[in-house]
Simulated scan of single mutants.
Amino acid sequence: MKRQFVALAAVASLVLAGCSSNDDEQSTTGEETIATEDVTTPEEGTTEEETTPAEVEPLISDEGMPTIVEEDGLKFLEFEAATEPDQLQVSVVEEGDGREITRDDFVFVDYSGMVWGSDTTFDSSYERGQETAFPLSGVVQGWRDGLAGQKIGSTVIISVPADLGYGPMGGNETAGIGESDTIVFIVEIHDAISDDEVGDPEATEVTPLDELPVDIEGGLGELSTVTVKDGADEPEELESIVVAESDGEEVGGPGSVVYFQYSAATWENSQTEASIDFGGVQNTTIGAGSAFDVLEGVPVGSRVLILVPGDEEAPAMAALVDVVAQIPAVEDSE
């Protein structure tokens, strides 16, 4: 998996230790093999719109689709009475009551994937025992177009023809998927967030803003920027300050994946950056050894200021973090 290289050396050391971009990551937990589209640089003279594939409208129908079989907590598909479709098709097994998700959302799901007609899965979050999350902008087109428009809380079966799946990549030998294979997924949609999701606007202020070593432009529930105050003492050790606390569930321990927006600045404000510059919501695994490990125990929706001391390789910095979601570690979710 790729890691997000950021402009700030200080933030790079913080981010590279455990934070992943939502542009490049195919997923964020376990050993998922959900394919991403090849990330290429547009040729000179072309626009982003010209390099983005046109939306494909899926056929919404149960006809000819496989059925879900559950055994010992695992879910897979039975193809005995199924007929392989020649287009993108979605069967809505159970419709949720949440909002419709968009092609730009970050989705939280459980899923199981099989080659059409196979009796084994090539990928399954059920087998890992932990749901996963990924941006729909980063997966194969059949996933993106198949899930877009479905509601949070739904369970669907998506049949993806080769040209909207692994076909353009020549298949996936590691997963046992051929270039012309149709792939089929069970997907349980647990939640979805937008790429500009922020923290809880109703969070309770814990630390008055005038007591912080930084100025914050942007209120709770807004994308914000941070600037270190003139004369503020540099941190001598890693420190976290809860600026505002929400009533969401607490971020779990090692193995939990936390999702957040951030704004950061070096101590002299010579360099600044924000997660929205890199596509929005970012993620990291608690216990990976990054400065974000201090988010353990912080309620989702809260705003936290992380102060990072400088060293020979990077200056001191301040990072304002809005926690927007988490996937608990396996042991925390049992």
Rank of each mutant, 00 (worst) to 15 (best):
I186D: 01
G221Y: 09
V90R: 02
A232M: 08
E188V: 06
V251F: 11
P213M: 06
A35D: 05
A291H: 09
A81C: 03
P168K: 02
Q150E: 11
P58A: 00
I327D: 02
Q261R: 10
E331N: 04
M65Q: 09
A148T: 14
S180T: 15
G73Q: 12
I34L: 15
V323Y: 10
I177C: 05
D163Q: 14
Y262N: 01
S302D: 07
D72F: 14
E313M: 14
A10W: 15
S180H: 13
T102N: 12
P53L: 09
S246M: 05
E249S: 08
E236T: 14
E273V: 03
S159L: 05
S256I: 07
L16R: 12
A192F: 09
E25H: 09
L74A: 03
I158E: 08
V11H: 13
F5C: 04
E205V: 13
V324A: 04
I216R: 06
L136E: 00
G170R: 10
E94F: 08
S112M: 08
T28E: 11
D233M: 13
F260Y: 15
S246L: 08
A192P: 11
D145M: 04
A7R: 13
T121G: 01
D72E: 15
V109K: 08
P254W: 00
V243N: 02
V294H: 06
T120F: 15
F76G: 00
G18H: 08
E25S: 14
F5E: 12
G253F: 11
L8T: 07
E245H: 06
D196Q: 08
S137T: 11
V258E: 08
G129F: 13
T51H: 01
T227V: 11
G289L: 14
S118G: 09
Q261I: 02
E50Q: 14
E25P: 04
L220M: 10
Q26R: 15
F108D: 01
V330G: 01
L147S: 00
V39K: 15
D293T: 02
A244P: 08
E78M: 11
G310S: 00
T33W: 14
G153M: 10
L164P: 08
E217Q: 10
S240T: 10
V206F: 06
D277E: 15
Q141N: 04
M114G: 00
D196E: 12
W267N: 00
T207L: 12
D293A: 01
A12K: 13
F106P: 00
E202K: 10
R103D: 09
F185S: 05
D277W: 12
P309I: 05
E70L: 10
L77P: 03
Y166I: 00
V184A: 07
Y126T: 00
E188P: 01
